[in-house]
Design a binder for these strands. Structure first.
Lengths: 110, 110
DNA sequence: TGATATATATCGACGTTCGTAGTATCGTCG
DNA sequence: CGACGATACTACGAACGTCGATATATATCA
């Protein structure tokens, strides 16, 4: 799973949201690092819906503008959980190696 | 950065390696989850070399077979460090949300 | 009146990965 | 002695997810 998709799920883990709301939430959740493009978002939403990780949760019209809401399904939550565990583990493994490397480099340089 | 690329760098953080060695190391480092395809590996190696994250570290002929060695550069190590920090943070954020969600779901169900 | 924020839709282009096939050597098992 | 699996690299088309641009429309503020 790529980062944009990951943040779509993470955003919806917080509760029911509409497209634009997901974009803004992903931005704040990632400290401004992940700015979802609209093309990416709706493509991801369609895909995730087809996979059953997300479901449409009603359309609303707020001040003349259409809002399409979405929410996370249980499989979606499970998928996000698995993905974040995997990333956490990968990160730990890489960081361990980098620590060993740093120790080696220091030893050689010293 | 995608997972296969990440593991190529992580593998080389351990020291100088040749293509096939990277594939085997990535596999064990990821507990068998990441099986690099040869096409992916050499494409990644070419790309990472062009970006200066990896350098060729000599060719050798071992029992009639060519081995192309590679090693991580300092920018490569820095890039891997940045990427793993980012992933660790993303994972933490997602897990926090999932915990809150679980608490909500439990409360509603209970 | 024009810029900015809100809100969704679509489409071609691009980069990374996948899948497969090809070439070749070495060791092992039958 | 021949088949097979492991080792080792090269090459290429297909698939997938993301990007960037374009389009449409309303509300608000200067």
């Amino acid at each position: 799973m790529r980062e944009p998709t990951f943040f779509v799920l993470a955003s919806l883990a917080d509760g029911r949201k509409h497209g634009y709301g997901i974009i803004k939430d992903a931005e704040s959740l990632s400290d401004g690092r992940v700015i979802l493009k609209v093309g990416t978002l709706y493509a991801a939403l369609d895909r995730l819906q087809a996979e059953g990780l997300v479901v449409a949760a009603g359309d609303e019209i707020v001040s003349g503008r259409l809002r399409r809401y979405f929410e996370l399904t249980e499989p979606g939550a499970a998928s996000l959980a698995a993905e974040s565990e995997r990333q956490a583990l990968n990160a730990r493994r890489a960081q361990d190696r980098l620590k060993q490397r740093a120790a080696r480099v220091t030893a050689v340089t010293a």
